[in-house]
């Protein structure tokens, strides 16, 4: 008995280590300069100092450094020969080598993180938090409202509506994305607007309808009738009795829906312009822009993972409990 448990702990522990390995590798790679990406590193490699003999053009290519920003910063007007080394540059344009170094050094040392930041990571993060937060909140509220009307299936149209939402589970997003785009832009006029992505998230679907309807159905109907007897209207029941009891199902809904909404790529990609991308689209765009600058790509991925992993770890008890409970209900 004891031994069998030990074996289980060992095997599961091993699997957990394997699970964590890619995360670890990601952190290492996010700080491994692209030029060293063909070497194996077990830990963050030492950075090589910026050599004044490096050519500006090479630096621009390898580290995705914006040559125009460099020219502006250094006060150079006109064309700069990318074949010049930094030392030659300093000489030609009579610049302090230290000034060049001060500007270029961090861009080389922390190339990945800085590139991602400059590409608009924080704005994208805020957009993601905004879209996901509004979507989870409003989507949950709408789901509770739907559940409060449908619970118990007192009329045939309740069941019909419920089944309509179930249909959503088996319509792949790709199938309807094109007409959705048409409706968003032509009918609602939501061209390049976060609201379009939010609308897609809060439109209701199998998950929220199932979770809230089935949970509300377990609340004794006498509570509702009692409010009726006490002279309350449905909104009294809704606000005073139902909402305070919705903690558990909302946790189930939020913990499953939040990663979906946070990680939604397709809709932001189609509905929004690159300047407004939420994180997954932003990360995808980084992958497209910095095709060979692995350091930047993996830094982008790492930075985009940190916030959601933090949310997950803070609420991990809720996530874990909801995952199992939601599955039993489903």
């Amino acid at each position: 008995m004891k031994r069998h448990q030990l074996v289980l702990v060992g095997l599961l522990g091993l699997y957990c280590l394997i699970t964590l390995a890619p995360f670890y590798a990601l952190v290492v790679r996010a700080f491994t300069p692209t030029v060293q990406s063909t070497e194996f590193h077990l830990w963050l490699p030492d950075r090589r100092p910026l050599s004044m003999n490096a050519r500006l053009g090479d630096l621009a290519t390898i580290y995705s450094i914006d040559a125009r920003a460099f020219r502006q910063e250094m006060g150079i007007k006109g064309y700069v020969n990318p074949q010049l080394t930094l030392a030659q540059l300093a000489e030609t344009y009579e610049l302090e080598p230290e000034r060049i170094r001060a500007w270029l050094e961090p861009r080389v040392q922390y190339n990945g993180v800085l590139s991602v930041m400059e590409a608009g990571f924080l704005r994208s993060l805020l957009a993601t938090i905004f879209v996901t937060g509004v979507s989870v909140g409003v989507g949950g509220l709408l789901g509770i409202m739907t559940g409060s009307a449908l619970a118990g299936f007192r009329r045939p149209w309740h069941l019909f509506t419920y089944n309509l939402y179930m249909l959503n589970m088996i319509i792949p997003p790709m199938m309807v994305i094109l007409p959705q785009y048409l409706i968003m832009t032509k009918v609602l006029g939501l061209d390049d607007n976060y609201l379009s992505v939010i609308l897609i998230h809060i439109k209701g679907g199998a998950l929220s309808t199932m979770v809230f309807t089935s949970y509300i159905a377990t609340i004794p109907k006498e509570l509702r009738e009692s409010v009726q007897m006490d002279g309350g209207r449905h909104y009294h029941y809704f606000f005073y009795v139902l909402l305070p009891l919705m903690g558990t199902p909302f946790a189930v809904f939020a913990s499953i829906a939040m990663p979906w909404m946070w990680n939604d790529l397709l809709h932001p990609l189609v509905f929004l312009s690159p300047a407004k991308y939420t994180l997954p689209a932003f990360v995808a765009a980084i992958g497209g822009t910095y095709t060979t600058n692995y350091e930047a790509i993996f830094s982008g991925l790492m930075l985009s993972l940190i916030p959601i992993l933090l949310i997950y770890l803070v609420f991990q008890k809720m996530f874990v409990r909801s995952a199992v409970a939601g599955a039993v209900k489903g």
Partner: peptide, 25 residues
């Protein structure tokens, strides 16, 4: 009407951005 007032908003959205696209397609 009460049921509709509560189920309606989401249902309207759902039909507009999910079922209607399907029918259009």
């Amino acid at each position: 009407l009460v049921d509709l007032a509560y189920a309606g908003p989401q249902l309207f959205l759902y039909v507009l951005v999910q079922l209607l696209p399907f029918v259009i397609a």
